[in-house]
Design a protein around this nucleic acid. Structure first.
Length: 418
RNA sequence: GUGGCCGUAGCUCAAUGGUAGAGCCCCAGAUUGUGGUUCUGGUUGUUGCGGGUUCGAGUCCCGUCGGCCACCCCA
């Protein structure tokens, strides 16, 4: 038996890495005063059918439940967020600055950087129209990546604005029904032959190609980049109007983070979706919103790729898995006394390990070393004294068992005092 | 969903169609209370699975499952 295709087992090392990623995500989000929330993993399929564009439905991990309901494992969080906000918005001051860390699913053939399950950080600002919110959110995205040790040499956030294109469509009298379709064509233009794109664009082909080549420009994008420059983040961003993103609900600024080497797919992406709460509440409510998501899979690959990030991650994992004290039971008749003190030490919050069964002393010290213990306490012939060994310096001293707790506390606060 | 490549021990990989191996890991020892070294010994495979060709298949053929890559799509 093995895990289903596209689903991962997290062995201790993988789990430690994942937890480390979550910790950074949470830490930086909190730095921006975002608050954490969570929604259900399973939603009515209907929630995704209309709101995310029809293309998403083929990729849903969906089924009929025992109550004959059409349900889907969530492929993304934004529709849930819009639903929840529409229902509870009066309970909160605006703007809402919410983040969430959760697992998402898609039913697709897996390949590298793309599984059937992954974890995502979602950060959203709801109820603020001002471009300041867009700037804040992009800055947050950059800072999250910086927290992993990445620099402007490692990644770039490409920023675009869908209004830049919809303005062009309007000027050229393109009916609004065709906008989504044309945006998809522009989104795809970098990945397919020019002739094919030109054919789909029709009379818009020439102006669109001209803009994609020259770069395009808009006051809004300039202000956005200027805002990031003032925060000292200029080197992390680039305007790229070719970025459109696939989801239908985006209405304004859209952005994606890529590794500079261009080796992986997008690390993170997001944008403005000002109409989604209105759609999901049948126009009972309309709140502007902007958000982004960052997945653990591509991020994890990039961490492995960049030495600085990989070493930082490794260091954090090593330090987190360390225990404080290993209890060496050198004489089995002292086991009960040792266990009494193990309980007391654990009650004080120390990480303690010991051998559950009679084991050679050498093996016990080996285990102490492997688990990264700072101290070893040896229970044997010295009783009622305990031998305390500093595993880094190999220095030993004898301490009466009833003075042990104080002595250990002193050492662990100030290594070197034993 | 379509196409190409691949599938041997827990991991990394050997084996001109002729008896399935190595390293690492793991476990146990080296006169019985001290840790990254060393030495010795030990466990593990229906060669992904199922058919077929052949005197004989890890090796060739077909199917299937799984993995990788590209397409599709991208949350």
């Amino acid at each position: 038996m093995q895990a289903l295709p596209g689903f991962r087992d997290f062995l201790p090392e993988g789990c430690a890495k994942r937890n480390c990623i979550f910790a950074r995500w949470r830490e930086v989000s909190r730095r921006y005063a975002f608050v954490e929330w969570e929604g259900p993993v399973l939603e009515p399929t209907e929630l995704y059918k209309k709101k995310s564009g029809s293309e998403i439905v083929d990729q849903l991990f969906n089924f009929t439940d025992k109550g004959e309901r059409e349900v889907a494992m969530r492929p993304e969080l934004t529709p849930t967020l819009a639903r929840v906000v529409a229902a509870h918005e009066r309970e909160f001051k605006k703007p809402l600055k919410w983040f969430s860390i959760g697992q998402f699913f898609r039913y697709e053939k897996q390949q590298r950087g793309r599984l059937r399950e992954h974890f995502q950080l979602n950060c959203d600002i709801i109820g603020e129209n001002d471009l300041a919110a867009d700037i804040e959110l992009v800055a947050l995205c950059i800072d999250v990546l910086r927290a992993f040790g990445f620099t402007e040499k490692d990644f770039v956030v490409r920023i675009s604005d869908r209004e830049f294109w919809t303005d062009l469509f309007r000027e050229n009298n393109v009916p609004a029904e065709r906008w989504d379709e044309l945006l998809q064509v522009i989104d795809k233009s970098g990945r397919e032959p020019r002739e094919k794109t030109a054919e789909k664009l029709g009379h818009l082909a020439d102006p669109v190609f001209a803009i994609l080549k020259s770069g395009g420009q808009s006051e809004k994008l300039d202000k956005l980049v200027d805002g990031l420059c003032r925060r000292g983040l200029a080197d992390f961003v680039a305007i790229d109007v070719g970025i459109v993103r696939g989801l239908a609900y985006y209405t304004g600024i859209v952005f994606e983070a890529f590794d500079r080497a261009g080796k992986f797919r997008a690390i993170a992406g997001g944008g403005r979706y000002d109409n989604l709460t209105a759609q999901l509440s049948d126009d009972a409510l309309s709140l502007p919103a902007i958000g982004f998501a960052m997945g653990d899979v591509v991020l994890g690959e990039l961490i492995n790729e960049i030495p600085r990030a990989r070493e930082a991650m490794q260091k954090a994992i090593t330090s987190d898995r360390k225990i404080d004290i290993y209890i060496v039971i050198a004489k089995e008749e002292r086991r009960t006394d040792a266990l009494t003190q193990i309980q007391q030490l654990r009650d004080r919050g120390y990480r303690i390990d010991y051998s559950l069964t009679p084991t050679k002393v050498a093996r016990q010290f080996q285990a102490a070393e492997e688990e990264g213990a700072s101290l070893a306490l040896l229970y044997g012939d010295e009783w009622p004294q305990v031998k305390v060994k500093n595993l880094a310096t190999r220095a030993e001293s004898l301490i009466s068992h009833d003075a042990l707790l104080d002595s250990v506390a002193k050492f662990l606060n100030m290594p070197g005092s034993v």
